[in-house]
Design a protein around this nucleic acid. Structure first.
Length: 149
DNA sequence: TCCATGCGCGGCC
DNA sequence: GGCCGCGCAGTGG
């Protein structure tokens, strides 16, 4: 892949649906097949996926908290260790500094056993903090608000 | 239940 | 800069 894209990719707009992570990757919307964050420590985050996978996420209408990576049990997904502001969480922290728009996709379930990914449009990271999470471990979380030009 | 696959990063030349 | 190897991962067949 060549240069990163901050903002809409192609004609995709909020509300657009994608069938799978593979399709998101193929369309260049969110390239990693499994990782929830696409970005670099230097430039910040291009896109993220909300998938109800992290217990310390907090979703609201006009803002949401996106939990950092790491410290999870591979099977259960529960936090079993502290998170650190290491290379894998730096892209999100960097976005808080740059204010660049982040593409947000959310995993939804139209019907049981079915799953899709909906484009939630452009958001920006306005704040990051380290808190004690549900399971009692230190986790990082990043506050997203709608992107304003 | 198993395991592929893409990516960022660091080491090396 | 370019190449390579490593470890990780908000999947999914």
């Amino acid at each position: 892949m060549s240069k990163p894209v901050f903002g809409h990719v192609g004609a995709a707009r909020p509300g657009d649906l994608f069938a799978s992570r593979q399709e998101l990757a193929f369309r260049g919307q969110h390239r990693p097949l499994r990782s929830g964050v696409c970005g670099t420590a230097a430039l910040g985050t291009e896109s993220i996926v909300l998938a109800d996978a992290y217990e310390d996420d907090e979703i609201h209408e006009t803002y949401f908290w996106y939990a950092g990576r790491g410290g999870r049990h591979p099977q259960t997904g529960q936090q079993v260790a502290n998170q650190h502001l290491d290379a894998r969480n730096l892209p999100l922290a960097r976005s808080a500094e740059t204010g660049r728009p982040v593409r947000v996709f959310r995993r939804i379930a139209p019907s049981p056993a079915d799953r899709q990914f909906r484009y939630e449009g452009l958001w920006q990271v306005v704040h990051c903090e380290r808190v004690v999470g549900r399971s009692g471990f230190l986790v990082w979380r990043f506050r997203f608000e709608p992107w304003r030009v």
